[in-house]
Design a protein around this nucleic acid. Structure first.
Length: 731
RNA sequence: GCUGCUGUAGCUCAAUGGUAGAGCGCGUCCUUGGUAAGGACGAGGUUUCGGGUUCAAGUCCCGACAGCAGCUCCA
């Protein structure tokens, strides 16, 4: 006998090996009809999976009301889509096809590429399959047989998956639906007829096993719901979310622009955007003064030697703008070195061609390069080595990819005593990174950006308090702006990755990682610890938010670093009158002004709270006759530091209101005959509408209070994910 | 960087291989008004750039550049 603990708290005795379907039938006809899957001790299973023989389990029948059921439905819909594709694209091979937070995808390798034009006929085929309402039938095979079955079906990726990841299991499960069989862990809905509505969304490339060195497959995205109504609501929500896109609003509200003449990924802040940014910067600066930071300014470039010492140059070469070599030959040699590597990856290229071009250029410029040695080198590796070595002896300047090396030099500029620590050096430091073209995105991923950066040099005893204070600072900043929809990620090193191979002592890493984990745990914060997410010099705590289409972006960050102090040989004199190594904390509560602004635009849907609004109020005279009075009101508000403008065009009041409303100006000040006579203004609130007339002094008091309190009246927190990285890998 | 899609007026978008259009915005004039769009007229284009096919290219082909979506990357 098996005891089931039902969601209502009651228990029920059933025979061992009973199926959830039978339990549902026993409970009620309607439940049996609506059942989609079941949940046993937190695990979602098919309705036909046998329950344990004995003991006691938590048991629930899942219907279309449960989020878990929706995920099952979507995974099943992925199978339906794959089945349709196999019918229409013979020879197509299937890779992975999981459910996502808002839909599903299936990675497919088809001999004839699938195009968006094919969506209607794939959907048509899917409709037929759904109408057929055939059941999803689970069966298991011993792993060698399972492999053979995949071979029979010509599904090479499934075989590779078995060989790579599933060999340790004695048996593997498949799901059959009509002629379609797929290696799959499940669970699935009882039959395809449960899929009430679905839609293919997009198609994109995706690498097999997420590895850029492997074959690129086609990833078909779709979504599915229990009803057409839910699908329509979702699509509507997606459309609404897109209206908040900072790239759209940034243009509409004249906050920023990007010019191809300046370059892609380089943000030009327009006056209104710059106003918001300026206020945010002042806000942070005020906090930093209170928290014992000292301002510094450092230049935008630095010697290559600086970044060789810090490790940035060797580690992130690809992501940096090339060094400004002091010697023309160096840039040629640098380019040549790159070509050598390319040539190595494409052995069909003729290396003598590169060499000839190289020599022709090189001999014009330089005599102290070991030409003979280079010519006689027998392997590409030897050539690359010579070039590298020679280049390494040359100095140059680099656009700074990070601020820390500069700040470190300020620390080093004077002898430090333990009495001076912690030293907290802060700067809105602008950095440049040559991000891959495919990565650039509005303000959220750019090539030049300003970090609200600071570096803290502390004694080991101070780490806990200082990291803790910085976590608090980030939380304070986020809450000041009403940003509550974020997650906390602790980035740890991945010992298997060579990214961390040469930097730092494993003991220091362990110590640093433990410190961060302990601090966050002590605060009771929810977090995920992710391997391989650490910076190359140390672990970090990141605050991650989502944009309007569901992509995740790191904003605030606090990073602990034992390594750069060693690389730069930093020290302070301790109580014992001997030199000690300080520990560094890198931190940026906003992250970058650009990215933060982009997220903030979406967060407020462009309707900034009064304290941030680039234009706080606009005077709108009812007719030109009252322009003079309007200008008088404007002049009375400005000395209070209020950002006020006036609309004195010969337009009707309705038109002026509409424009101000679309520009998301918090207050519209209507003045006409009545106001002029009474010496008042009629106040229209962006959110609440007409507030009636009031004296100017009352208006000033009202606005000043709202600014002082940094009052937030409207936010748009609902994010709609078209994409989601919490994919459930149910193969 | 990879795969796919896209690139037409300041913005959003039309235009079967045959004279490039609309709405909004902009300018001028009329209108002087009471809380989300008054009216008239007008200016505005090397259809991203470079090649090619064709009697003829915004339209078809190739390449570059840029944007979008996804993948990879992200100090």
């Amino acid at each position: 006998m098996l005891t089931l603990r039902l969601p209502d708290g009651s228990t029920r005795q059933v025979a061992g090996g009973t199926r959830p379907r039978e339990v549902a039938e026993a409970i009620g006809k309607r439940l049996a009809r609506d059942a989609v899957a079941a949940k046993v001790d937190g695990t979602v299973v098919d309705l036909d999976r046998e329950l344990p023989e004995q003991g006691e389990v938590a048991f629930a029948v899942l219907t279309d009301k449960d989020a878990d059921a929706l995920a099952v439905l979507r995974h099943s819909c992925a199978h339906v889509m794959a089945r349709a594709v196999l019918r229409l694209f013979p020879g197509a091979q299937l890779a992975f096809g999981p459910a996502l937070a808002n839909g599903f995808y299936y990675d497919i390798d088809s001999p004839t590429p699938i195009r968006e034009e094919d969506f209607p006929r794939i959907e048509e085929e899917m409709r037929k399959i759904v109408a057929g309402a055939e059941p999803f039938e689970r069966f298991e095979r011993p792993t060698p047989e399972a492999r053979a079955l995949c071979q029979d079906m010509g599904q090479g990726y499934k075989i590779e998956h078995i060989d790579d990841d599933l060999k340790q299991y004695p048996t593997l499960s498949f799901y059959r639906q009509g002629e379609f069989i797929d290696l799959c862990r499940g669970p699935h809905i009882p039959h395809a007829g449960k899929i009430g509505a679905f839609k293919l969304v997009s198609i994109a490339g995706a690498y097999w096993k997420n590895d850029a060195s492997r074959k690129q497959l086609q990833r078909l995205y779709g979504t599915a719901f229990f009803s057409q109504k839910d699908l329509d609501a979702y699509l509507h929500q997606v459309e609404e979310a897109k209206k908040r896109d900072h790239r759209v609003l940034g243009k509409q509200l004249k906050l920023f622009t990007i010019s191809q003449m300046v370059g892609s990924g380089l943000i030009l802040w327009m006056p209104k955007g710059a106003t918001v940014r300026g206020i945010l910067e002042s806000f942070i600066k005020d906090e930093l003064v209170k928290r014992g930071y000292q301002p510094v300014y450092t230049p935008h470039i630095g010697r290559l030697e600086l970044y060789r010492t810090s490790g940035h140059f060797p580690y992130y070469r690809d992501a940096q703008f090339p060094p400004m070599w002091g010697h023309d030959f160096a840039s040629i040699a640098d380019l040549h070195l790159e070509q050598l590597f390319k040539w190595y990856n494409h052995p069909d290229r003729d290396s003598t061609l590169i060499d000839d071009a190289f020599f022709a250029m090189a001999q014009k410029y330089v005599s102290h390069f070991p030409f003979e040695k280079y010519r006689n080198a027998t392997s590409w590796l030897a050539k690359a080595g010579l070039l590298k070595e020679w280049l390494h002896d040359l100095d140059s300047y680099l656009l700074k990819p990070m601020n820390c090396p500069h700040h470190i030099q300020i620390y080093k500029a004077e002898p430090r005593s333990y009495r001076d620590l912690p030293v907290r050096l802060a700067e809105f430091g602008t950095v440049y990174r040559s991000e891959q073209t495919g990565e650039l995105s509005g303000m959220t991923r750019v090539r030049g950006f300003t970090q609200d950066d600071a570096h803290l040099f502390v004694t080991p005893e101070q780490i806990e308090a200082e990291v803790g204070a910085n976590i608090d600072l980030v939380l304070f900043v986020l809450s000041s702006l009403g940003l509550s929809d974020y997650r906390v990620r602790i980035g740890l090193r991945d010992p298997a990755s060579d990214k961390y191979a040469d930097v730092g002592d494993p003991a220091d890493w362990d110590k640093a990682e433990k410190t961060l984990l302990d601090l966050v745990a002590a605060r009771g914060m929810n977090y995920t610890a992710e391997k391989g997410e650490a910076a190359f010099y140390g672990p970090k705590i990141d605050f991650v938010v989502r944009d309007c289409i569901g992509r995740e972006w790191q904003l605030g960050t606090v990073q602990l670093d034992y390594n750069l102090p060693k690389r730069f040989d930093l020290e302070y004199i301790g109580k014992d009158n001997t030199a000690h190594k300080p520990v560094m904390i890198h931190r940026a509560p906003f992250g970058s002004m650009e990215r933060f602004m982009g997220i903030l635009i979406e967060h407020f849907a462009g309707a900034f709270p009064l304290w941030l609004a680039p234009e706080q109020a606009r005077v709108c005279p009812v007719s030109e006759k009252f322009s003079d009075y309007g200008k008088k009101v404007e002049a009375e508000l400005k000395p209070h530091g209020l950002r006020v403008s006036g609309d004195y065009r010969p337009e009707k009041i309705g038109y002026k209101i509409r424009e101000a409303q679309l520009e998301k100006i918090p207050y519209m000040l209507v003045v006409g005959e009545k106001e002029q006579t009474a010496g008042t203004v009629s106040v229209r609130d962006r959110v609440d509408g007409d507030l009636g007339a009031m004296p100017v002094a009352e208006l000033v008091a009202r606005l000043e209070a709202e600014v002082r309190e940094k009052r937030i009246r409207q936010v748009s927190t609902a994010t709609t994910g078209l994409a989601d990285d919490t994919a459930r890998y149910a193969e």
